[in-house]
Design a protein around this nucleic acid. Structure first.
Length: 563
DNA sequence: CTGAGTAGCGCC
DNA sequence: AGGGCGCTACTCAG
C-alpha cells in the first residue's frame, strides 16, 4: 500500500510519496521492524489544483492519504467531487496512541514526550461554502511526515499483534465516513416534520408563544394544582408550587413525579414530553438544521472517551423517535437500516472468550438464548442482568440475577469485574484494540481525612470502577462498529458507480446502527452487504471467536418504519 | 448583559 | 442507584 502525505511547502500544498514498510493492519499481522517511513518524491501543487491532484493520485493506484485530519482536509475534496479510499488521520491517531497503555508499557517516545501541537485541540473546521472553500484561519500545520514517522515507530515498538494499527485504520475510515455522511446529508422531509409537529403540538405558533396542545395542558396543570400562576417551564418555581400543593417532591424529574399519585402528574408529564420535542426538535430545529431536504450534522469521530462518536450541533445522535417519520427516502430510493442486536453483550462474550455466552447468542436473540439455556426465567431478567453487569448496576432485577449470570458466564463476568476493580485501584484499562481509558487524577493523600471524606473517596472510587467496567465494553463495541462501517463502506463502493451519491451510500450512524440511502433496486444487495460486513468486523477484531454478530435489517421508505 | 453551571430529557 | 453523550432553557453570579 502506497502512502502519500498531504503537507505544505512555503504555504502551498504538496504531496509527498512515502515509502512505508510493514503489513496492512489486521490483528495478528505484527509490527514491522526498524525505521520504516522514508519520504520520496515531492509534488508541489497550486492551491486551486489540490483536489485535481488528489483525484489523479487516487486513480493511479491504491493509496493511503496521510493528513492532519479528515475534518480539515476532506470536506473541500468532497465539495470538489473527490472521494478517497483510505487515510491516516494523524490527530485521531495521536489521541489514541497517547491513551494507549501499550505505549506506556513499551516506553515509546510518544508515550513520554510532552504535549505538543498535535495534542492541541484541532482548529475550526474549514467548511465549503457555495462551492468555494471558506478557509478559516488555522495554526500552521505541524509536519505530518515527521508525525507519521513517530506514530509508526510507536506501533513498531508497542503493537506486537497489530491491534493498534487496526484501530488507527478503523478510526481513520470512520473519519472519512463522518465527512461523507455530512456531505451526503440525511434525507429529511420538512413538510412531513411539520405535519408530525402539528399533530402532536398543534399548529406552529408565533415565535415565543406556546403551541396549542401545550397551552391546553398548562390549563389542566393549573386547575389540578388550583394555582393559576404555575409556570411549568421553570423547574425551580414548579418544585415550590408542587410542594405548596402538598406534593412531596424534591425535583421535577420524571422518575420522581411518576412515583406520585395526583391529578397534576399526567398532564405535567405530557407537557414536559411535548415541551422537550418543541424546544429540541421543533420548527426552530428544522429551520436551523434542514436545508435542501437534507440534515447535515457535524459528526465527531472519537468525540467520546470510549471511542464512540459525538456530534457537534443538531443533536444528531439524539434524534427522538417521534420525528423519525420525517426521515424519508428520495423517490426511487430506499433506506437500509441495520441495527446490531445486543451488541455490547456479544462484544463482551467475544472479548472474554466466554463460549457459553457466545452460544446463547448464536442464531438468535441473545437474551432469549439465555432463557433457553435455563440461566434466567425471562428475557427481561436477561436484559437487565446483562445491562447491570456492563453498567455496574447493583440494585433491582439486575442485582437479583447477577449470581446466576456469574455461575453461567464466569469468564464474561470476571472480565467486567476485573475492569471495575482496576478502575477502583486507579489503574487505566483498555479496549480490545488498545484504546486506553483516561487516568484518574490521583488526589493528594490526606492523613487527617474525616470519615466523611473517606466515605466520599470510596464512593468516587466505585463510580470510577463503574466507568472503567463500562469503558472496556462500550469502547470495544465502538471498535466493532467502526470496523463494520469500514467493511460496509468498501462493499457499497463496489455496488455503486463512480459517483458515490448516485449509488448506495451511508447517511447515518448511531453507535450500533447504520442507515444506507440506496437506489431501491440495490436495497437487497445492500442489506446482504451489511450482514457480510458485520461478520467481517467480528473476524477482524476477534479472529475465530465463536460469537455471531446478529443484525436486524429493514428496507424502508421512512426511518421510523425500521424500529 | 454575559457566561458558567444545572436540570431535565432525548439517544445509545 | 448503574455507563456514555448533546441540547435547551432556566438560574444566578459577576
Amino acid at each position: 500500500m502506497d502512502h502519500v502525505a498531504l503537507t505544505a511547502i512555503d504555504g502551498a500544498p504538496a504531496l509527498v510519496e512515502l515509502r512505508v514498510r510493514g503489513p496492512e493492519p489486521s490483528v495478528g499481522a505484527g509490527p514491522a521492524a526498524g525505521p520504516e517511513v522514508e519520504p520520496g518524491a515531492t509534488t508541489r501543487v497550486a492551491a486551486d489544483g489540490l483536489a485535481e491532484a488528489v483525484r489523479r493520485r487516487e486513480a493511479a493506484g491504491p493509496v493511503r492519504w496521510v493528513w492532519e485530519s479528515s475534518a480539515r482536509h476532506y470536506p473541500p475534496l468532497l465539495a470538489a467531487g473527490v472521494r478517497v479510499e483510505r487515510c491516516h488521520d494523524l490527530r485521531l491517531a495521536r489521541r489514541i496512541l497517547r491513551s494507549a497503555p501499550a505505549l506506556r508499557a513499551a516506553g515509546s517516545e510518544l508515550a513520554t514526550a510532552p504535549a505538543d501541537a498535535w495534542d492541541a485541540p484541532a482548529g475550526p473546521r474549514a467548511e465549503p461554502v457555495g462551492g468555494a472553500l471558506f478557509e478559516l484561519e488555522a495554526p500552521a500545520a505541524p509536519d505530518p511526515v515527521a508525525e507519521f514517522a513517530r506514530q509508526r515507530a510507536a506501533l513498531a515498538a508497542a503493537d506486537a499483534d497489530g491491534r493498534l494499527a487496526l484501530l488507527l485504520s478503523a478510526e481513520s475510515v470512520g473519519s472519512l465516513v463522518a465527512e461523507e455522511m455530512r456531505h451526503a446529508g440525511l434525507p429529511w422531509d420538512a413538510e412531513r416534520h411539520d405535519a408530525i409537529l402539528t399533530e402532536l403540538l398543534g399548529p406552529r405558533p408565533p415565535v415565543g408563544a406556546r403551541p396549542a396542545h401545550m397551552e391546553e395542558l398548562v390549563v389542566r396543570i393549573r386547575e389540578a394544582l388550583d394555582d393559576p400562576a404555575v409556570n411549568p417551564d421553570s423547574p425551580v418555581e414548579l418544585v415550590k408550587r408542587l410542594q405548596n400543593a402538598g406534593l412531596a417532591v424534591r425535583s421535577t424529574s420524571r422518575w420522581e413525579l411518576k412515583a406520585i399519585e395526583h391529578p397534576v402528574i399526567a398532564p405535567l408529564l405530557e407537557y414536559k414530553s411535548l415541551q422537550r420535542l418543541h424546544v429540541a426538535n421543533g420548527w426552530h430545529w428544522v429551520d436551523e438544521w434542514v436545508h435542501g431536504g437534507r440534515f447535515r450534522p457535524v459528526y465527531v469521530p472519537g468525540g467520546v472517551v470510549t471511542g464512540r462518536w459525538a456530534s457537534d450541533g443538531g443533536g444528531a445522535l439524539q434524534i427522538p423517535k417521534a420525528v423519525r417519520g420525517a426521515v424519508v427516502a428520495d423517490p426511487g430510493w430506499s433506506f437500509v437500516v441495520a441495527d446490531a442486536a445486543q451488541l455490547e453483550p456479544r462484544v463482551l462474550a467475544a472479548l472474554s472468550r466466554d463460549d457459553a455466552m457466545a452460544a446463547a447468542g448464536r442464531a438468535q436473540d441473545l437474551y432469549t438464548g439465555m432463557v433457553d439455556a435455563g440461566v434466567v426465567e425471562t428475557r427481561e431478567q436477561a436484559k437487565y442482568g446483562m445491562l447491570g453487569a456492563i453498567y455496574g448496576g447493583t440494585t433491582g432485577e439486575s442485582a437479583r440475577v447477577l449470581p446466576r449470570l456469574r455461575r453461567a458466564y464466569p469468564r464474561a463476568m470476571a472480565l467486567v469485574e476485573e475492569a471495575a476493580r482496576a478502575g477502583e485501584r486507579g489503574e487505566a484499562v483498555a479496549t480490545h484494540l488498545g484504546r486506553g481509558s483516561p487516568r484518574l487524577q490521583a488526589e493528594d493523600w490526606d492523613e487527617t481525612r474525616s470519615d466523611a471524606q473517606i466515605a466520599r473517596a470510596q464512593q468516587d472510587a466505585r463510580a470510577w470502577g463503574r466507568f472503567t467496567r463500562n469503558f472496556v465494553v462500550q469502547g470495544t463495541a465502538a471498535e466493532w462498529a467502526l470496523c463494520w462501517m469500514g467493511a460496509l463502506r468498501r462493499r457499497l463502493a463496489e455496488l455503486g458507480g463512480a459517483d458515490p451519491l448516485a449509488g448506495p451510500h451511508l447517511v447515518f450512524f448511531l453507535h450500533d446502527e447504520l442507515v444506507v440511502h440506496s437506489p431501491a433496486p440495490l436495497a437487497e444487495a445492500v442489506a446482504a452487504a451489511t450482514r457480510e460486513a458485520a461478520a467481517e468486523a467480528g473476524r477482524l477484531l476477534f479472529g475465530a471467536a465463536p460469537v455471531e454478530f446478529a443484525l436486524s435489517v429493514a428496507i424502508v421508505q421512512r426511518y421510523a418504519d425500521a424500529t
